[in-house]
Computed example of a mutant assay.
Amino acid sequence: MNIVYSRDGTAIAYDKIGSGFPLILVDGALCSRTNGPNGPLAILLQQYFAVITYDRRGRGDSGDTKPYEIERGVEDLSALIEEAGGSAFVYGISSGAALALEAAKRLPSIRKLALYEAPFVVDNTRAPVPVAYLEQMEGHLSNERRGAAVKQFMRKGVGLPAFVVAMMPLMPAWKKLKSVAHTLPYDTILTVEHQRGTASTLSRWSSVTVPVLVGVGGKSPAWMRNAMQSLARSLPSARLQTLEGQTHIIKPSAITPVLKRFFEEATIV
């Protein structure tokens, strides 16, 4: 484990494996460098790139200076890029894709960007996230109802069926999910304005001109596929790629060749 310090002094824990041009992997909600899809993905990608996985603030071994703002997450990524040599490729999954987009909007040090299934809701193919979603989430957490916060995220944010959410406390991973529940508002702040059922808010990132790959699973629900199509259209230099047979829980072996191909097309200046 290594430590880099963000602009506000927060310690950000990271691991680096492999060699080559730096590639930073950004986790989605409730995941960390030791718990989630990016750890196994890094192992597969290390033969092509110097792969960095890190604990987003508030998770794992990273610090959690309050209050959280989107800019803090961008500054964390900026510190990692500087530590890696001053420029990098970035891959973000789920809410990590939203953070990566924000970073690419502000950081010219990001040379190329790959995104997988940012959880946006741009039409009526699923219910939008409730207006009071963030306030309800913060209410659960302020009253130490971590389990309720996770359930709200899974039911109203992810859109899982009620019976699935009801069974989650019986899962072995439930304790780990609750341990990072306090970071769910951070993911919500990143995404909630783009989960209201309209695509117009995606113009926020129209200034992101670096090459972008927008990935979506062929077996993912219509609302997700529609959202990623809209996102790709809203970015000046983006292309959409559907990974057949995949869902939001993307298999590392499925996306590794896609990322390799995309990032190796880049011209390093």
Rank of each mutant, 00 (worst) to 15 (best):
G215E: 07
R155T: 01
G157H: 02
S95P: 06
A149K: 06
A42N: 13
T247H: 03
A118E: 02
K178A: 14
A79H: 05
V212A: 05
A100M: 07
E265V: 07
D64F: 11
G96I: 12
Y14A: 02
P161N: 14
A97G: 14
G85Y: 07
L44N: 12
Q46F: 02
Q46V: 01
Q229M: 14
Y14I: 00
A79Y: 13
T242C: 11
Y133V: 04
D8H: 07
N124T: 14
G36Y: 02
D61Y: 09
V158K: 09
F21H: 15
L177N: 00
Y14N: 05
V51W: 00
W205L: 08
T125A: 14
K175R: 12
R225L: 05
G96A: 11
W205C: 04
P169M: 11
Y91V: 00
Q246F: 11
L240N: 10
I250V: 15
G217K: 09
E193T: 13
A181G: 02
V90R: 08
H194I: 14
P252Y: 14
W174N: 00
G245K: 13
P119Y: 04
I3L: 14
V214K: 02
Q241W: 09
L235M: 06
I249L: 10
T201W: 13
G36A: 05
R196L: 13
L190S: 08
R239N: 02
F120P: 13
K176Q: 10
T201Q: 12
L30Q: 12
L231W: 01
G28W: 11
P130M: 04
A42M: 05
A79K: 13
Y5I: 03
P108F: 04
N35W: 08
A149R: 12
A181N: 06
E144D: 08
A127H: 09
A227P: 08
I12Y: 01
Q47D: 09
V129Q: 00
T267I: 09
M154G: 02
Q246P: 04
Y186Q: 06
T198M: 06
G139D: 12
P37C: 03
K105D: 05
D76A: 05
T247W: 01
L101V: 02
N2G: 10
I255A: 04
A222L: 15
T242F: 04
N143L: 01
S94L: 02
R146K: 15
L113H: 01
A79Q: 15
G86P: 06
S109Q: 15
R72F: 09
D76T: 05
A114S: 07
R57I: 05
I52E: 01
S62P: 07
E144K: 04
S230M: 12
N226K: 06
Y116Q: 12
V192A: 10
G73T: 00
Y116M: 08
L107F: 01
S203M: 03
A127E: 13
R126S: 15
G58T: 10
G197H: 06
P130D: 02
Y54V: 03
R7F: 15
H248G: 05
G157R: 00
A132H: 12
A42C: 09
L25A: 03
L23A: 12
F153R: 00
D61Q: 06
A103M: 12
A50V: 02
G217S: 08
T191L: 09
A266M: 07
G36W: 00
F153D: 02
L99V: 12
R155L: 10
S109V: 10
A104K: 04
A11R: 14
G20R: 03
G86A: 04
T34I: 13
A88D: 10
W174D: 05
L99W: 06
L160A: 15
R126L: 07
L243T: 13
L80Q: 00
